[in-house]
Computed example of a mutant assay.
Amino acid sequence: MESTSVKNYFFYFASLVLIVAGIKAAAEIVIILFLAIFIASIISTFINFLEQKHIPKIIAYLFVLGGFVLLTILLGYVLNISLKDFISNLPQYEKQLQALVVKGVSFAETYGYEIDKNTILDALNLNSFFGITTNLIGSIGTFLSKFLLIIIGIAFILAEAKSFEKKLKVIFDKDRKKLEHFKLFSSNIQKYFSVKTATSFFTGFLVTIVLMYFDIEYPILWGVIAMLFNFVPVVGSIIAAIPAILLSLVSGDLNTTLVLIVLYVCINVGISNIIEPKFMGKELGLSPMVIFFSLILWGWVLGLVGMFLAVPITMTLKIAFDSDKSTKWLSILMSNIGNRK
């Protein structure tokens, strides 16, 4: 029996390797599929809400889907303009940062410290600091280039949602437990995506307002980046803060920079550690180790977009495991055991 069990585990592991390899080979198609499924899951929450307010389904469907399309196009337009202007001003920002470094070195030298100023200036390249931003916007550009396919996919998924539920009832007609497991899985998935999207939007909104208040350039651009990077735990909020902090620093106002750092920390810690757990529930927590390796795995498989999808994909798997008693142990292994009673 032990030999058979070991063989089964090797079989499952080999199957998993083949599945991951297949996903990597078909990354372009898989990204479209995953984005369509995740966005459809979020949009369906709004459609259900409108239906509960006795708004006809077709009107709710067209209103929410049309609103999403218009909002995405508008954001894409604003981001495109902001990014082009930002890149054109990069040489100026680099000169300002170099001047700031020279002042810092001169100040340190007055206290007897010897620093090779030329080495620092030669190594200093502002493009490297903002490289992640350019790559991110490039990924957004890829998303927009496949926008029509994603929208069509979302439209079909939403249109098939009700009939898919009927199909499941037919399939699991003699096994109500599996139907209940799927309903629990579907409910938790919608809950997770709805809360995560809402908190991410709230994060981006607060960051935009703060940057506007302190008159930091391109506040909408950095706000959208903060919203997107909220889907990448731990490192996401740090990376999202770097461009705005550096722009504040090159302006020469150290006090404003320090205040911005504190506000970024307060916004991200407050939303991630207080608001999200309150609305998601403790059962939807992931182990930090699982988060770390999921970022590496899905980043390797699907590229930069995979890093944003890593936690949603991993959370989907965890919720699926948690919905059935036979696989619940896998869910426990993936969870943050410190959050469990």
Rank of each mutant, 00 (worst) to 15 (best):
H181I: 02
F182G: 00
F182A: 02
F182Q: 09
F182R: 04
K183P: 00
K183N: 13
K183V: 11
K183M: 09
K183I: 13
L184R: 15
L184E: 06
F185M: 12
F185Y: 13
F185A: 06
S186V: 07
S186R: 14
S187N: 13
S187Q: 14
S187D: 12
N188L: 12
N188T: 05
I189T: 04
Q190G: 15
K191Q: 10
K191I: 05
K191A: 04
F193P: 00
S194C: 11
S194Q: 12
V195I: 15
V195R: 07
A198R: 06
A198S: 13
A198Q: 08
T199P: 05
S200H: 05
S200A: 15
F201Y: 08
F205Y: 12
F205M: 13
F205P: 06
V207G: 00
V207Y: 00
T208R: 07
I209V: 15
V210H: 02
V210P: 05
V210L: 13
L211I: 03
L211F: 07
M212N: 14
Y213H: 08
Y213G: 03
D215Y: 09
E217W: 00
Y218T: 01
P219Y: 06
P219W: 10
L221D: 10
L221V: 06
L221A: 07
G223K: 05
G223D: 11
V224L: 11
I225P: 01
I225D: 02
A226V: 09
L228I: 14
F231C: 06
V232N: 08
V232E: 09
V232I: 15
P233N: 11
V234Q: 11
V235C: 09
S237N: 13
S237P: 05
I238Q: 03
I238A: 09
I239P: 04
A241D: 10
A241G: 03
I242S: 07
I242D: 01
P243T: 07
P243I: 00
I245A: 01
L246C: 04
L246N: 04
L247T: 05
L247I: 11
S248W: 02
S248E: 00
S248P: 01
L249F: 14
L254D: 03
N255E: 13
N255K: 14
T256V: 14
T256H: 01
T256I: 12
T257D: 05
V259A: 13
V259R: 11
L260P: 09
L260I: 10
L260G: 07
L260K: 10
I261P: 04
I261S: 11
L263F: 06
L263E: 06
V265R: 02
C266Q: 10
I267G: 09
V269M: 10
I271A: 04
I271P: 00
S272C: 02
